[in-house]
């Protein structure tokens, strides 16, 4: 186990045995170690606000595919079917679905035409941090079901070349289906494990939306309150670190990596970045430009690299989204 995490976990376990923490965890159905960590980062009142926010289901949000349709026209067409939509402050192509109309959101004719993607507001923000440009070669290392892959091509008007990698044969079907439904063509979908599969090198940008514990999607999947242990967290951290190290090996000098994870856990966010900054001096953190709160720099007595403050996190109780960590990195080899 990563030595720094081992140190933190001892303190997490000690804090989790506090009766006050245990009572709060029991009240909301969490494992005590999770609540101990929320209290560490947010304080008591912040942690309670988070736990309360996680009890409220997410309002559905969609991302308009402005590569195919004017977003005002999409809004009108859906409102003719009884939907009520409200534009998000960010990103500009996002809509909150305040009332559902005829048919399911994933079954309208507009959906089949590829005019939108059903996606959380935090999730649809991540591709903006990558700032993809037309004509670039871009790798999405964990691409299914395709929300961010389709958005990279949307932002580049289908003019970048995207290599979208997915290791699950079941999930890769969704990835291909969404790319085709939304009418993108500049992609190569690769079936394989991003740690091992042959991939292009010298690429302009890499998006790594890393596999995670899913602590950020408790509002969608409450089973995540109790389905992961500290040893799972350690295992996932290790996988995320290895994937990010592979991402670093793929980008050209001056290339950009966006690392994200749908998790609230600093172990899956700031600690991964801290470790990379320590072990890869060629990597620096850049401003991500998203309306997220700064990364955590002090956690259970461990001081992390100050630069992780430039990473960001979307919180359910602050941003009314899923929980998401995001960090933009640049690799300079000289």
């Amino acid at each position: 186990m990563y030595e720094l995490l081992a140190r933190v976990f001892e303190k997490v376990k000690a804090r989790a045995s506090d009766p006050k923490i245990r009572r709060l965890a029991e009240k909301y159905g969490y494992r005590a170690y999770m609540v101990a960590r929320y209290v560490e980062v947010l304080g008591w009142s912040g942690a309670q606000l988070l736990l309360e926010a996680n009890e409220k289901p997410l309002t559905p949000t969609i991302r308009c595919n402005d590569y195919l349709i004017d977003c005002g026209e999409l809004k009108e067409r859906l409102e003719e079917k009884g939907y009520v939509l409200e534009g998000l402050e960010f990103p500009p192509v996002g809509f909150r679905v305040l009332r559902r109309g005829i048919g399911s959101l994933g079954g309208t004719h507009e959906y089949l035409q590829g005019y939108y993607y059903i996606q959380d507001a935090a999730s649809m923000s991540i591709a903006y941090a990558l700032t993809p440009e037309p004509s670039e070669l871009i790798v999405d290392m964990a691409a299914a079901p395709g929300g961010k892959s389709t958005q990279i091509l949307q932002l580049t008007r289908d003019k970048a070349l995207l290599v979208a990698v997915e290791k699950s044969p079941r999930r890769i079907r969704s990835l291909r289906s969404h790319l085709q439904r939304m009418r993108f063509t500049r992609y190569i979908v690769v079936l394989g494990d991003s740690l091992r599969v042959p991939l292009p090198t010298g690429v302009d940008r890499v998006l790594l939306d890393a596999p995670s514990t899913g602590e950020g999607i408790i509002r969608r999947d409450p089973s995540r309150k109790a389905s992961r242990s500290l040893s799972d967290l350690s295992y996932i951290h290790e996988t995320q670190y290895k994937l990010l190290s592979r991402a670093i090996s793929l980008v050209k000098d001056g290339g950009v990596i966006v690392y994200s994870a749908c998790s609230l856990a600093p172990e899956e966010g700031e600690f991964v970045i801290h470790r990379v900054l320590r072990e890869h001096p060629e990597v620096t953190v850049e401003a991500h430009g998203l309306p997220a709160t700064p990364g955590v720099t002090s956690y259970f007595g461990v001081d992390l690299d100050d630069r992780v403050a430039s990473c960001g996190r979307f919180w359910p109780h602050i941003h009314d989204t899923e929980g998401f960590f995001v960090c933009r990195l640049r690799v300079r080899r000289d």
Partner: peptide, 17 residues
């Protein structure tokens, strides 16, 4: 830049005709 991808791993690409 080297675009080397094993063809065995390519699942889908480009416009599906």
């Amino acid at each position: 830049m080297a675009l080397r991808i094993g063809l065995d791993n390519v699942y889908s690409m480009g416009l599906y005709v």
